[in-house]
Design a protein around this nucleic acid. Structure first.
Lengths: 229, 229
DNA sequence: ACCTGAACACCGTTCAAGT
DNA sequence: ACCTGAACACCGTTCAAGT
């Protein structure tokens, strides 16, 4: 019989990413993954120490799909472009958000990504102080995650009776949801434009940061310490 | 022997919340919860349909701990105060973030909270259009979640050899992390001030929204449709 | 060095039965 | 109406053994 291809950490992680893309991350178990690779469950443990390390590897693979920053762009445009790139990558691996958000510590790969992001701000002339707070404020958005909860209930049209009940219980939610559909070419609801909402939120933050930078913003801590600008 | 107190949905959910607060949400299983309540696992299924419904109930209980909005405040202050309130509640139940973020649809309780939040913006005179986009932009922040990844590696001091290696591999991360510690009274690192970072990010967004509102901002969709202001 | 088999201590949930 | 017992189809992981 033909000898099976040797297992490697790379092959294990890649198979896990594919499986998560296909079936969702909740269905990725060491046992199912082993079956997928035509191997007994315990064989995987020679290549990843445990399931947590497997998940780390999966996230790292996703982060490595994000293109490196573009050179010679003004900082705001460089950050914007890169985050929108990251968003496209994350849309291909929707499970990655939840996995990253459940991790306590960043992997070296994630740290490297953050490092390259910080580099853009610093190269653009932002102070270390401002850059620090901006990185916190952007948070997981630098990886291209929207910060939204719930995968948008829009799109599913409730029946009329249900709709009336909703409108009575949550008048403001319904009013705001209907407000968007006033686009003349759209029937009642293609739902929200996720790309627009993402860019709106991102630009809101980046424009605000630019304004702080231009005004020479410094945190009160830095001001109290009398650090040089 | 004394008859045990009758099980109710309320009692089941409350015990689950307490257990999650104590041991973390990953350790809340139907079986452990049953043992905690001195009952056989299957007894729980008379009060919650399944584990997903239990988690819904737990999140609802947390949301209900958030105080209702304060009346007679300008919209920005009302929103700010309420979100900071929500943050305090969420700090008591740190597991709630991950549970909410893994849910596809909001419970009626979550919808009610969102509805009351939208009401503040609308009462403050913001257009439905702007309010809609702002709700998306704030995202899970309205529930008091910070959007940060990783529970802040600061606080743990790496040994000198490790520190040197870190500084070489991630110079920008290290520079920015050290930038904050220039507070004269602080030794090398009490870590970041989470409350400050949260308020910084929140104010960055709320101030930006206020500016859009004052400038009569309207989305291009609304402009194209020629909707009345 | 790499893979296997059997086992341990868990899960959520169904079903038929008890009181 | 409410709780129980036994069972099913799963988990991640350890350990000792095979090649």
């Amino acid at each position: 019989m033909p000898q099976r291809e040797r297992l490697t950490r790379e092959r294990v992680v890649r198979a896990a990413v594919d499986m998560a893309d296909r079936d969702g991350v909740d269905d990725v178990s060491m046992r199912r993954l082993a079956a997928d690779l035509d191997v007994v469950p315990m064989a995987l443990y020679k290549h990843v120490a445990n399931k947590a390390e497997l998940l780390d590897g999966m996230v790292d693979q996703v982060i490595n799909e994000i293109a490196p920053p573009q050179e010679h762009l003004p900082w705001k445009q460089a950050v914007r472009t890169r985050i929108l790139d990251a968003r496209q990558v994350l849309l291909r691996h929707p499970w990655a958000r939840r996995v990253m958000e459940s991790k306590a510590a960043p992997t070296p790969t994630a740290l490297g990504y953050m490092d390259s992001m910080i580099a853009i701000f610093v190269a653009g002339g932002l102070s270390l102080d401002l850059t620090h707070h901006v990185m916190h404020a952007l948070g997981s958005r630098i990886f291209g995650f929207s910060q939204e909860l719930f995968t948008e209930s829009a799109g599913v049209q409730p029946d009329p009776a249900m709709a009336a009940q909703l409108a009575q219980a949550f008048p403001n939610v319904v009013a705001v949801a209907q407000g968007v559909e006033h686009d003349p070419d759209s029937v009642i609801g293609p739902g929200c434009d996720d790309q627009f909402e993402f860019e709106f939120a991102l630009d809101l933050q980046l424009d605000a940061v630019e304004r702080l930078h231009e005004n020479g913003w410094r945190s009160s801590v830095a001001r109290a310490a009398g650090t040089a600008p």
